[in-house]
């Protein structure tokens, strides 16, 4: 440690060892540029670093508050709960892990669904909760998403989904894998009704979620610098045995390769998404007669 580092107050030191050691609570340290700011300020800025625009992770419910109008926002489908049908056990029982995670996060599973409005446009909105088993998709997420789609069809509403997920939930094995088919099939029905689906891919959107519902939006939007892909970067590195290119599997890389429509800052999401839905829905009513 140099003399300069020594005289700096500990929380300003950009020491690698100290990474993440800023106590939860008053301060937030940006995981990208390591700038330290008041947590209140960080949260007021929607968990985005004011210095480097790094979009930090954010809970499903906070996202819902950002995106949806306060008026008419009602959570739905929260009575669908996970069960451990396979009696899955690794180092601990899946059943026990579910219980502790539910207690810790206050959520039943990794997706929260609302009916509500985005700038007065009626929508059904799904939000992945990353802190619940890495936002992984099992039977509950698949069922919630599928019913959300049905509600859109019943009410002629648009669908919005914010993905933040490591992929399929291993502990539910093939049941999880088949949720990829289930959610994709639901979206096929939505598509046949010509109702818009806006998919927002946030950090991270990987594996079975990326390779099903997240990539099937009429419009696919990504948050800046989000990790998005099918295979995880470590697996790829091991397989190909070479270093991955800079920015690989990040939103900007995906846009460059034509995989997403555009990148959108969190602060602009509400207005832009509502604009897009309103454009796509503008001729929905006279569809039957015009076709």
């Amino acid at each position: 440690m140099s003399w300069l580092d020594k005289i700096l107050p500990s929380r300003i030191r950009a020491n690698k060892k100290d990474k993440g050691s800023v106590p939860e609570g008053l301060w937030h340290k940006c995981s990208n540029c390591e700038t330290v700011i008041y947590r209140a300020e960080f949260e007021k800025n929607l968990n985005v670093c004011p210095k480097c625009n790094h979009h930090g992770r954010i809970s499903a419910r906070k996202r819902a508050d950002i995106i949806l109008d306060a008026e008419g926002k009602i959570e739905i489908l929260n009575d669908i709960k996970p069960i451990d049908v396979l009696n899955f056990k690794d180092k601990e029982k899946y059943k026990d892990k579910l219980a502790t995670t539910q207690k810790k996060t206050g959520e039943n599973d990794a997706m929260v669904v609302y009916q509500g409005f985005i700038n007065k446009i009626p929508v059904i909105a799904c939000f992945f909760e990353y802190s619940f088993f890495g936002g992984s998709m099992g039977s509950v997420v698949g069922e919630k998403f599928s019913i959300a789609v049905k509600k859109c069809i019943e009410g002629e509403k648009a669908l919005i989904c914010f993905s933040a997920s490591g992929g399929a939930r291993m502990q539910e094995s093939l049941f999880s894998l088949f949720q990829m088919a289930k959610t994709s099939a639901a979206l096929n029905s939505l598509s046949n009704k010509r109702l818009p689906y806006i998919s927002i891919l946030t950090d991270p959107t990987m594996g079975g979620v990326s390779a099903s519902l997240a990539m099937l939006g009429d419009i696919n939007i990504a948050e800046p610098n989000a990790l998005i892909g099918f295979a995880g970067p470590r697996v790829i590195e091991q397989t190909v045995g070479e270093k991955l290119p800079n920015g690989f599997q990040r939103s900007e890389f995906l846009q460059e390769h034509g995989s997403i429509d555009f990148i959108l800052n969190r602060s602009e999401q509400k207005i832009k998404i509502s604009e897009i839905i309103s454009a796509l829905m503008s001729n929905h009513d006279n569809e039957e007669t015009s076709r």
Binding site: A211, I228, F230, A231, I236
Partner: peptide, 26 residues
Amino acid sequence: GAYPGIDAESRNQSQAIAENLFVMSN
């Protein structure tokens, strides 16, 4: 499994799989 490679990801492996699921269902 699907190939975990740089080229595969660059050409949007996720979308290729998702599209098949979408189409096969109907």
